[in-house]
Amino acid sequence: MIYIEQIGKYFMMLGRVFTKPQKPKIFYEALMKEIEDLGIKSLGIIMFISFFIGGVIALQTALNLDSPFIPDSLIGFAAKRSIILEFAPTFCSIILAGKVGSYITSSIGTMRVTEQIDALEVMGINSINFLVLPKVIAALFFYPFLIAVAMALGIFGGWLAGVLSGLFTGTDYIIGIQTDFKPFLIVYALIKTLVFSFLITTVPSYHGYFVKGGSIAVGKASTQAVVWTTILIVIANYILTQLLLT
């Protein structure tokens, strides 16, 4: 019963988030700040992880495909598919749910427990729109770019790992990358990214905005937000895959 109540409250919150900003100039400033906080500041960790995971995917594939009947180009093909379809959009979104989700919940939650949200309301500001909408738009705008970078660096990491280890040649890897290339798979990955971006910003915002208590409650809310965002990403990933690829 409590879950139904919370889902209802979440959707009612969304209704208040998606209203016209009271002052476009202030909204634009907030949006730029959120692009920096949620997007640009996540670029480093996403680039780092993508590069090394791409390398590991290529190495693992190479080590597990030791039959002479299987061409080495399949390593590049498998790495490309793994990175574009799952690693970049889903795995990176789960990483972002941890990094950005906990930041969003703790920052909004702290504003709630220190009465900063009440201060906004007293001034006549739609606090939920003011705080959440720039985050959602920033993520929807920036995360597809972030995931595209993750795809490119993951594939590059795979190539470099192969070349450095000598398990496969760069040429075979590139042939694999080019084999059966379907642009729709990139579209599929970016559609998933948009849905995940929405979840990464709105679910932690919900947990932060409605937190009650003090600093311990904010900490618990941050943990809950990350857990629920991850669960929802996994469920959404399954549903979207069913809808778009089968």
């Binding site: 702290t110 504003m111 220190t114 009465e115 900063q116 009440d118 201060a119 007293v122 001034m123 006549g124």
Partner: peptide, 16 residues
């Protein structure tokens, strides 16, 4: 009416 109200909160509630 909101703009005619000023409020000083217990913990100041400044935007940190």
């Amino acid at each position: 009416w909101r703009q005619e109200i000023g409020m000083v909160f217990q913990g100041s509630a400044l935007f940190d």
